[in-house]
Design a protein around this nucleic acid. Structure first.
Length: 492
RNA sequence: GGCCUCAUCGUCUAACGGCUAGGACUCCAGGUUUUCAUCCUGGCAAUCAGGGUUCGAUUCCCUGUGAGGCUACCA
């Protein structure tokens, strides 16, 4: 088994393309086959500089490795590795020339000199008459002499696929079963454009054959063009690969997932602090399921479980809420060190110029204390956490008084807390602080809420926060005592 | 318009033709010796419609409807 992922360098890696790349990867690895990466850059007008490099980097960030194809060298330049190169289609012009000549010679393709204007007129005419827009084979019967004369005269031309009418073209889709179509519904597809480069259809078939592709796994939007590809394989007398078409990823309104309705670039999700492992896990479940209730999978587990038979046929809406949930699970699975390393850059960026006012240790503690509250790493950059970085807590004094307590009791508790904290010489850990102060409250016969609520508010000025002991742990004794002092002052 | 594909909770999905249509996300309620979050428990919520085939259809067939894709010298 040999499969490929063949993106176009037209921008970023689309989240749907990630899913296609992933499924190809999983299919190859599950079956001990090979997986290769080809660059389909035949449309020069849509080429975006550096897009090819970013594509490779994003794929690598998601840990989808390939056996051969384009890759980045030490210097960050694109190079070929493997025996089937070049893997960039724009470098394969001579190869396509050779094969198109073969088709021309066997009468399966023909030169077309029709101008863009003529084609446009033809199309509007057909639409006005409610006819399917299709090339009218105007140039199909040009004699070799006429063709030579026109070429010699410098006329622009394309080369088209010759499709015979009234044939049934069939193929079996591994996910959807047999699909057949009448050739009357297939256009005489342009194979070689006037710039000499092939269209997707031609390059794709030639390369898949030459590169030994056994299974073509791509998105549903390619079902309709597949009969053209089948025809090409037959014209060449080549063995066809197996086809399997994946479901589309959808916007909430069920249209094809697009930029207009939210982020579609994998790099944007990574930049926001979605972990690649979570993204891969999430996207794997859009159109495939393991057949049981499990939802959390490592890449290796996916490799082990994946099969085409478990792939669905209907489109899947990309649900950000569920992604957030899953990403949160992955964040909570991170080791403390890994979490700190990954979240720190977001915090530093948020703090900007002021970042040097706090020690590394302090920032690490802020991150660790937020662990259960993060759905994505960038959540650490939140104004809700300003009390960690701003000593001037502007809160209403009444907030200090717990709903079941009163002002006098609260003042007393705050004062007691202050002296107890000042005297505290035990270990400075969340657990030790918790144990000590809970025991201390119990000794005095107080309610936890009576004491801990004002402690929280004194420390952070808010009613919602991590536990008071976590706050203490982060802020440190000195800062905490000061804030308790301020709280007492506010109440008097 | 033509062709192709698809159709189970709001969303992702499960269910050899056979229990009360199961799980997850979201939402709601309760619990976890203080709040939020995490975690746990519970709840709301679906077979597009109409015909067949069958003892029995979510499942098979037909028709309709709906949705999406393709219909470029883009992929």
């Amino acid at each position: 088994m040999r499969v490929r992922f063949a993106p176009s360098p037209t921008g970023y890696l689309h989240i749907g393309s990630l899913r296609t790349a992933l499924y190809n990867y999983l299919l190859a690895r599950h079956n001990q086959g090979t997986f290769f990466l080809r660059l389909e850059d035949t449309d020069q007008t849509r080429y975006v500089p550096e897009a090819d490099k970013k594509l490779i980097q994003t794929l690598k960030a998601c840990h989808l490795d390939w056996d051969d194809g384009i890759d980045l060298n030490e210097a960050g330049e694109i190079v070929d590795k493997g025996d089937f190169g070049p893997y960039t289609q724009s470098q394969r012009k001579e190869i396509y020339q050779k094969y198109i000549q073969e088709l021309l010679a066997s009468g399966k393709a023909y030169y077309c000199f029709c101008s863009a204007e003529r084609l446009k007129e033809l199309r509007t005419m057909q639409q006005n008459h409610n006819l399917p827009p299709k090339y009218d084979k105007h140039c199909v019967n040009l004699s070799p002499e006429e063709v030579q004369a026109k070429i010699a005269a410098g006329e622009k031309y394309v080369i088209r696929l010759k499709v015979e009418g009234n044939q049934t073209i069939e193929f079996t889709d591994l996910i959807r079963g047999p699909i057949s179509i009448n050739s009357n519904d297939i256009d005489d597809q342009v194979l070689i454009k006037s710039d000499g480069l092939p269209t997707y259809h031609f390059a794709n078939v030639v390369d898949d054959h030459l590169m030994g592709t056994t299974h073509v796994l791509r998105a549903e939007e390619w079902i309709s063009p597949t009969p053209k590809h089948v025809l090409l394989y037959e014209y060449f007398g080549w063995e066809k690969p197996q086809f399997a078409h994946l479901t589309l990823l959808l916007n909430p309104d069920k249209s094809k997932l697009s930029k207009r309705q939210g982020d579609v670039a994998v790099e944007d999700y990574l930049a926001k602090g979605y972990l690649p492992e979570a993204l891969v896990n999430f996207v794997a479940l859009l159109g495939w399921n393991p057949g049981d209730d499990r939802e959390i999978f490592t890449l290796d587990e996916l490799v082990k479980e994946f099969s085409l038979e478990k792939c669905g046929k209907s489109g899947a809406v990309f649900d950000l809420k569920k992604l957030d949930w899953m990403n949160g699970i992955y964040i909570r699975q991170l080791s403390e060190q890994a979490l700190v390393d990954k979240a720190k850059p977001y915090l530093l960026e948020y703090l900007g110029d002021k970042k040097n006012q706090w020690s590394d240790d302090y920032l690490n503690k802020v991150i660790l204390v937020q662990r259960d509250r993060l759905n994505k790493l960038s959540d650490i950059a939140s104004d809700d956490l300003s009390y960690f970085f701003n000593d001037d807590l502007n809160y209403n004094p009444e907030l200090l008084v717990w709903k079941k307590s009163d002002k006098e009791k609260t003042t007393e508790h705050l004062k007691s807390l202050q002296s107890e904290l000042t005297a505290y010489a035990g270990e400075w850990s969340i657990q030790a602080l918790n144990d000590h102060f809970i025991a201390w409250i119990k000794e005095h016969g107080w309610n936890n809420g009576d004491v801990l609520w004002p402690l929280r508010v004194a420390l952070c000025g808010q009613e919602k926060s991590p536990s008071p002991f976590e706050l203490l742990w982060v802020l440190g004794k000195e800062k905490a005592v000061t804030r308790l002092n301020v709280a007492v002052g506010k109440l008097s």
